[in-house]
Structure formats: structure tokens, C-alpha cells
Amino acid sequence: LVAAVLALVAGAVAHRRLDDRRGVPLRPDLAAALRGERYVPPREEPAEEPRARTERGVFIAFEGGEGAGKTTQSRLAAIWLRDHGYEVVTTREPGATKTGMRLRALLLDKETTGLSSRAETLLYAADRADHVANVIRPALERGAIVVSDRYVDSSLAYQGYGREQDVEEIAAVNAWATEGLVPDLTVLLEVPAETGLNRLSEPADRLESEPRAFHDRVLRGFRELAEAHPERYLIVDASRPQQEIRREIQDRIREILPDPVPAAAEDITSTFPAITDV
């Protein structure tokens, strides 16, 4: 027994001194040698470098009835944001993608007749799903500010209240289509239906041609949607001068803006961005 213990100790010492492959386990190395092979230990995969954290962008939607000034005010907001150093993606519904442009032509062309209210609702949802997947979400993921002329609320107001369909069902369809993406701020521009329709400078499209009662229901729908979630809406009286409207919108947008200067740059320069009026 003593001889065996001494032999084990002597073998361990000899192996430690004569080991020409430090760090290679003895058992798999010996097994490979008996097979006439050279044991190669598995390589450890290098740990992945932690990805730089990018802040999600900001999503702003402009809503309202016909002739309320959504396109003008969304454009002015985008220009103001770009002037202050933000990456801004301006977009609209329907028709922001190639597929969307085809759907827009179908949905707004007065020659499109016989389209059921449910079919109309689903076509808008299809356009929106493509819009979110290919325009809005990629822009938000890289930290851009997305300014959209119309979003889900338009379907709830037009196809829900206007067409007198179940608003909750339309909301559920659109929640699935957009994967639950909700704007950080929705600017609702309000103007009486008659005033807005009289502002139109081009021939009325299929929806604009609907009777006054339809547009009154749409406006009531927008107001009810905004009152249900006041924390993420700005309701604007769009009958006022354009500059007053622009300033009110800018004041509200300031509250949700991210810092346009990366934190690392601030650490180096010890400066902070200043948001000023233009």
C-alpha cells in the first residue's frame, strides 16, 4: 500500500515536470494518444462585446379631420426638429411604402365603388402593418424621431365612428397589425367639418366626398379618443393662425424630446443642447 502511494506521488510529480502541454487535461490527451491522434482542446468562443445601447426614438402622430392642417403642421414640426439636430423621418398614411401607395390609390380613388366597410378597415390595417414594419419601427430603433401624418386613430375615427363600426374591434385589428406600437404624442388638430372641407384645394377623394354627417361623427370620434388618454394627446384649435398653432405644438413636443447630443459627447464637452425657437 505504501509503495502504491509512493508510486502515485512519484507519477504525479513526474507528470507535472515533464508535461509539455500545460493546461490540457490528462485523460482526454491519453485517450487520444492511444488512438494515435493528437488531442486538441475545444476553443472557447470569445465573449460577445456588449452592444452599445441605443435609445429608442420618438413617435409623433398628427391627426384630425379633413382640412385641419395636419400635413402643414407635421412638416413644420419636422423642419424645426431637424434644425435642432435630430434625425427626423416624415411619413404618412396611407401610402408610405410601395405596397401602401397601391392601397392608397384603391382606398381614396372615387372610382372605387362597392368596397365594404370591413374591407376598407382591413385594407387600412394592411397598409399600417407594412408602414410600421418597414418605416416606423426601423427608424425608432435607430433613435430617429418619426413624424407621421395619420396613424391608428384615423381608422378608429373614420372606419369606427364614421362608418359606425365597432371601435374596439378595429382597435384590436390595428393593435395586431402594429404589434402594439403607440405614438409617444398624438397632436389632434380640430376644426369644424364645414370649415375643413372648404379649405380643400383639390377635388375631394373618396372619403372627403362623404356627407357632412359622416365627417361630424369622425370629429366626435377623434375628440373621444383624445379625452380617453389625455396624457399622450395635444388637442389644438386649428382655426387659429398658423404661427400660434406651430408654437403650441413645439412647446408640447419639447417635453418628450430626447437629448440630440450623445451622452459621451456631453461627458467630453460638458455642454448640453439648447432648444430655441426659429
Rank of each mutant, 00 (worst) to 15 (best):
R118V: 05
T113I: 06
A78T: 05
I275T: 14
E66F: 01
V236Q: 07
G196E: 04
E179W: 02
G36A: 10
T90P: 05
T90N: 07
F59I: 11
A144S: 15
R240C: 03
P42C: 07
G196N: 13
A193F: 14
Q250R: 15
T121V: 03
I249T: 09
R17H: 11
F222L: 07
A264I: 06
V173E: 09
R240K: 08
L8G: 11
V236R: 08
T271C: 06
D251E: 15
Q159Y: 00
E93R: 14
L188G: 03
G85Y: 10
A4N: 06
R102G: 02
R206Y: 00
P258I: 01
E120Y: 02
Y158K: 08
I245Y: 04
T113L: 08
E227G: 04
E248Q: 13
R142A: 06
G57E: 02
F62M: 09
A32C: 10
T178Q: 04
Q73T: 13
E255G: 10
P28T: 05
Y158R: 09
V135E: 02
A263N: 12
V147N: 02
P183D: 09
P260K: 14
D20H: 03
A14P: 08
V132R: 09
L257P: 13
A263S: 11
A33N: 08
R27M: 05
A139V: 08
T276H: 12
P183Q: 13
M101F: 04
W80T: 13
R35M: 11
D20C: 02
L103E: 00
L30Y: 13
T195F: 13
K98D: 12
A105D: 09
Q159C: 02
R206H: 01
D277G: 08
L107M: 08
R35H: 11
D166W: 09
E49P: 03
V152G: 03
E194C: 08
L76G: 12
A226C: 07
E208G: 08
A7N: 09
E120H: 02
A228C: 07
A78Q: 06
P262L: 02
G65Y: 01
E63F: 11
G64D: 13
G23I: 02
A77N: 12
A228D: 06
P46C: 07
R199A: 03
T54P: 00
R142E: 07
D83F: 01
V187E: 05
F62K: 03
L219H: 01
E224W: 02
Y233L: 11
Y39F: 13
P241M: 09
R240E: 07
L207K: 00
A171N: 07
E44L: 12
A12I: 11
T178Y: 02
R252N: 13
V278N: 10
R163D: 00
A274V: 14
W176Q: 02
V191S: 11
A68I: 09
A177P: 00
A10L: 15
L189C: 12
F214M: 01
R232I: 06
R104H: 05
A7M: 14
K70N: 12
L156H: 04
H131Y: 14
H229Q: 14
P262Q: 02
Y233I: 06
P50D: 10
R212C: 04
P258Q: 04
E49F: 06
R199E: 05
E179K: 14
T178K: 03
R43D: 06
D251G: 12
D127S: 11
V191D: 04
F222Q: 01
T54F: 10
T97C: 10
A204T: 03
E224Q: 12
Q250W: 10
